[in-house]
Simulated assay, not measured.
Amino acid sequence: MKQLLFICFYNFGLLFSFGQDGYSKIENTKENDLKVKNLGTHLSNSYSKGDNQVFLNNILPNRFFKKVILQDLENKKLTKFNKKYKAAYSTKITSFPNELINSLKNGDFYNFVSYNFDPVDKTYHLIFRYYSEKYGLDYHDYRVLSNGKNLIIDDIFVYSSSQKLSETLKLYYLSEAPKNYISSITANEEYKYILMLKNFVDAKNNNELKKAYKHISLLNKALNNKDRFTAMLKLELSRSISDEAYFESMEDILSSFTIDPSTNLSAIRYHYLNKDYEAVFKSINSIQNHTNDTFLDFEKGNLSFAAKNYESAAVFYKNMIENYPHFHLPKFSLLVIYEQDQAFKKATHLLDIILNTSSYKKNTLTQKVKEQLPMISASTEFKNWCKK
Rank of each mutant, 00 (worst) to 15 (best):
Y110E: 04
S162L: 14
S184Q: 14
L165Y: 06
R143H: 03
D141H: 13
Y173H: 08
D141E: 15
N106H: 06
E133Y: 09
L126A: 03
I153V: 02
K122V: 07
I101P: 11
K164A: 01
L104Q: 06
H140S: 04
K179P: 01
L151I: 10
L165I: 00
L169M: 09
S183Y: 08
S161W: 00
N111A: 10
I153L: 13
Y159A: 12
L169F: 01
L137Q: 15
K179R: 10
H125E: 07
T123P: 01
P178I: 04
I185N: 14
Y131A: 12
Y131C: 11
S103T: 09
N111S: 13
E133A: 03
A187F: 15
K164D: 09
N180R: 12
K122Y: 00
S161F: 02
T186N: 13
D154H: 14
L100S: 07
D155A: 08
I127F: 06
R129G: 04
F157Q: 08
Y124M: 05
S160C: 06
D155C: 07
I156C: 04
Y110W: 12
A187N: 15
L137T: 15
L104S: 04
L151Y: 10
Y172R: 12
E189N: 06
V120W: 00
I182E: 09
V158Q: 06
Q163D: 01
K105C: 04
D118I: 02
T168V: 04
N111H: 13
F128V: 11
Y173F: 05
N150W: 09
V120C: 05
R143Y: 06
G136L: 08
K105T: 11
V113G: 09
K149A: 06
S183L: 14
F117L: 09
E189D: 01
Y173A: 10
S103C: 07
Y124V: 04
K134R: 13
I153Q: 07
V158P: 10
K170D: 01
S161V: 00
L169A: 04
N180W: 00
S132N: 01
I182A: 10
N180H: 09
N147C: 05
V158D: 03
L126M: 08
L104K: 10
V158L: 07
N102C: 07
G148A: 03
G136T: 00
E133N: 10
Y173E: 02
A177E: 12
V113M: 02
L171M: 10
E99L: 14
N106R: 13
L145G: 04
F109V: 12
K134P: 02
H125N: 03
F112W: 12
D118W: 04
Y131T: 11
F117R: 07
F128M: 03
H125K: 08
L104N: 09
T186Q: 07
Y135P: 03
I127M: 06
F109N: 08
D155G: 01
D155S: 05
V113N: 11
L151A: 01
A177V: 15
Y173T: 05
L174V: 03
L145F: 15
L104M: 10
V113W: 05
Y173G: 02
